[in-house]
Amino acid sequence: MKEARRFVTQNVKEFVTLAFILLIYLVAGVLRPEVLSGGRMAGVVNSVLLWTPLNLTMALGMMMVVIMRGIDLSIGSNVALSAMVAGILFRDHGASLWQGIVVAVAVGAACGMINGFLIAYLRIPPIIVTLGTMNAYRGLTFIISQGKQVTGYELPPGTTDFVAEGVRLGGVLIPWLVVISLLLALVFYLILKYTHFGREVYAVGSNREAAYLRGINCKKTEFLVFTIVGALCGITAMMSASRFGYINPSNTGKGLEFVVISATIIGGVSVNGGKGTVVGVLLGCLLLGTVNTMIANVGIPGTVQLFTYGLIIVTALLVDRIVLSLDSKRRMAQQVAGKEALR
């Protein structure tokens, strides 16, 4: 019992996010009971699942960047650029799906390296670098595509199978995209928790000077993190092609950075660096996915969606803040009580 309590208090942020997700289901259930009934439920779960993988994959990278006190605004454009390069190979050179995936990841990683080099080695603030590359990559996407989109017919056969097929768990079909992103999440969970590199990310984020004095190559770590984010952009690019069935120079990856940053922060990654977990980010993505799906399913008209979406982000921030301040007060009270007892 005591251990269970400690588990909860140590992971307050994650539990708050979880509670928030359940609350949304509850509200939806009260407003429209039929949404949670047998037939509709599978559809709801499916659309939450389909909303999640792109954002989760990107959020894993964004999390590492934010833990290192950085930010990456260029991810949306990077996704568009790597998707477009692969798309042009598909369309004009008859590349196979796997060749396309390799190329997209390589292009994404190269773009990430450019960010990483400017940020880590030239010490230019990440927000400026990525704001610049955000424009540059998006412009490049337009230039190489000459403004034309790659349509579903021009994608290699089997691209959309990743959405349509998957693992069947009970009555719910879990698409391959979701499985892949969950596997990635597992991999990053292990990397961040159990490898040198993962611990270095946290160390550099919480105190760069101290990390340097401990013999950590801060620049290399930062450069690697941005390169990994770039590679994840390449994976997301292919996921987006599979999910939407086209690659468009202006639509693909548009606004992705804001959604992903919101999911990351709601998931409890601290903008002051050094704090954040994969589980929290996963819950943050699920929360935003649930919000998006429920807004449509509860029958809120389309014009109110944007407002509700923003309201929920702000509310989540507020709830998070209130719970954290209550928690820190309780902890301080405990410390005082502990000192009293020692006397």
Binding site: I261, V271, Y309, L311, V314, L317
Partner: peptide, 16 residues
């Protein structure tokens, strides 16, 4: 609250 995240949220609220 961090200004960047708050204004990302209120951005949707106001335009909404």
């Amino acid at each position: 609250l961090p200004s960047m995240i708050v204004t990302i949220g209120t951005m949707s609220v106001f335009r909404g």
